[in-house]
Design a protein around this nucleic acid. Structure first.
Lengths: 351, 351
DNA sequence: GTCTGGCAGTCAAGGTTACCGAGTGCCAGC
DNA sequence: GCTGGCACTCGGTAACCTTGACTGCCAGAC
């Protein structure tokens, strides 16, 4: 598409502009080692690059700035993510060495880590709608005369918990009976095992079992609809822009979890790793780029990590950080160093 | 401390500066209804107020701006929180009408609500270290040959879950035995019931029980140490400042949960509802004020809600919003419309 | 044909100057 | 003790110029 020299010039412009945030002049490019031509020649090439939409001139006596298309070409011709710096690699290593415990906490801290690594805002989308595991234990516990709790422990250590309303006239013994019959029906199979347990002979017990089964089959109300998102380093992102209004807009987006999730999903669904400027649909983020990667749990795509920064971000470093973090996170989650806390029908293997 | 006229002038200056963010001139104050004196008189009074530290003059030919001390006087002489506007009251009503479900979610959304109400950043600190409830059910579930899960259901519907490592040579039957003995020991009392269950005769079972009991008594690792914080409307806060560096600093603070929690705690502990400028210890937040209120669960102080805005915030409205939200939140949490999700030894009454 | 040096043109940025107006402080008089 | 008046102070804005960093283009060299 572009001959070698044009590509080299474009590349030089992008790299310089990422560093300095200033328009890049022909003389700067010409003076660069590796390209031994005069500024005038560079100017001619730049004029062509501008005509073809890779560069843009803020005003007639200014240097050139890359367009989104220019960044796209640059990113596509990147040889791959840069290796992480030594301190960064150390940071990642340390982080994942001491990563244990609760999933929510881990994800939140991962977003913070990723933000540290890149100096941009980082986003981590929690695993969504994982497939149910085998049931190891089911219990109905009466909490009050009117209310019971159905508690199921899954093979991966996740605990499902649902409230079940009791009819007025149910005796403790009936709850216990329903509990053991439901357990007999569910233990060893999956939570959404179809069908009903054999009738017990007591209609009250039967309806209680039906209620418990029904509520256990439904996803936790309020949580299933949307995967939670963890945003880290919003402040860092603010440092990348100087217009207050831009900061405000971007911050606003970062607070709208729903928008964020669909943004990342969108990008991934289109098979992209990097979305530059307006490539993702959000006009408000026209000055931003997004670098994303999915992470896996036990070999299955589970969630997304990503970095949100200015269009002139250090793509190679961001790519590297995102790649490493998603890989390490996949490993940590799959190895069971991190435990799902609740209500997730997690597909995770044993804790 | 201040005679009526000085107080009125100070009040006028504060109110005007809150509205306009500009230095306030003597002529503006003089022309205000209720104070019928000439600008010159106002100037004289202002000079005194400045000497006494209530006002400040950015430069010799500018109007006056309130100091922190000026704001403090203003806030202290406030007749009380302003009533909420009708749309705001409606917003609150609607919000708490449909508030059900998970605690975490509710708190996060509450912070968003409070931020909407005030147009500043809002902070909600989750209830901390609630006292344990009665145990309704305990179970040991073997997940793998090496690992079991101790699951306890408390009277309030909370579910405690702990991993227990199994010695190599434990049989399924032994786990079951330990499970029922542990249940017999714990059900009906509290999780931290002292002592040990009666020896079963099988040392493997006994040690298993000891392990299960021990882990159930410990708080969930990683969560207990610090109450989670929910921050809403950071973007709104950014709108209140125009220096990018200030925005960045304040955003940075908002991301440091630990700092936030101790900030709010500090303010409350000193018996304050409002902390202005440097009254709280954080130099980075010198341009900010904080309005806080505790909320209760079942009559016991549980957590904190607060608003973080510029020193020139609308104190009356913020006070009103914080008061209403903390009250309504207390009610919602105490009525059991909101359910703790997990691992909290919650003191909440039955679901 | 391609590259280069040179030259004229353009435009943003920065510095200077002048001016305006919003405010104050002070004082004399009511 | 209050007020009107007056001189003074400064920040902000606009107009202006200069500077310098670019570009575009062209004619000549390779």
């Amino acid at each position: 598409m572009l001959d070698d020299r044009k590509a080299a010039i474009l590349r030089a412009v992008v790299e310089c502009h990422i560093r300095t945030a200033q328009p890049v002049s022909s003389s700067y490019v010409a003076q660069l080692p590796g390209l031994s031509v005069s500024p005038a020649t560079v100017r001619n090439e730049m004029a062509v690059l501008e005509q073809e939409g890779f560069l843009f001139q803020p005003h007639s006596s200014a240097g050139r700035v890359p367009t989104d298309k220019g960044y796209r070409y640059f990113v596509d011709s990147l040889s791959g993510p840069a290796p992480l710096g030594p301190e960064q690699a150390e940071l990642v290593r340390m982080f994942f060495n001491r990563t244990h415990g609760e999933l929510e906490r881990t994800l939140a801290e991962t977003s913070s880590l990723l933000s540290h690594l890149t100096d941009y805002a980082a986003v981590v989308v929690a695993p969504s709608a994982p497939e149910p595991g085998r049931v190891r234990s089911v219990q109905l516990v009466a909490l009050s005369p009117r209310l019971a709790l159905a508690v199921a422990v899954l093979a991966n250590g996740a605990v499902e918990r649902r409230a079940v309303e009791l009819p007025n006239d149910v005796a403790e013994a009936q709850v216990e009976m329903a509990s053991s019959l439901t357990a007999a029906f569910l233990v060893g199979s999956s939570l959404d095992r179809p069908g009903q347990p054999a009738p017990s002979g007591d209609p009250a017990v039967d309806s209680l079992m039906a209620a418990a089964l029904g509520s256990l089959r439904l996803p936790e109300p309020g949580t299933g609809a949307q995967a939670p998102v963890y945003v880290g380093g919003a402040a860092r992102m603010a440092a990348a822009f100087d217009a207050v209004s831009t900061i405000r807009t971007v911050l606003g987006i970062l607070e709208q979890q729903f928008v964020l999730v669909s943004l990342l999903k969108d990008v991934l669904d289109r098979g992209l790793t990097v979305a530059i400027g307006t490539e993702h649909g959000l006009v408000q983020l026209a000055e931003c780029s997004v670098v994303v990667a999915p992470y896996e749990v036990d070999g299955q795509q589970a969630g997304t990590v990503g970095v949100l920064g200015p269009t002139r971000m250090h793509y190679d470093q961001a790519l590297a950080a995102v790649a490493v973090v998603s890989k390490k996170l996949s490993k940590a989650l799959s190895d069971g160093e991190v435990r799902r806390q609740h209500s997730d029908r997690g597909q995770r293997s044993a804790v």
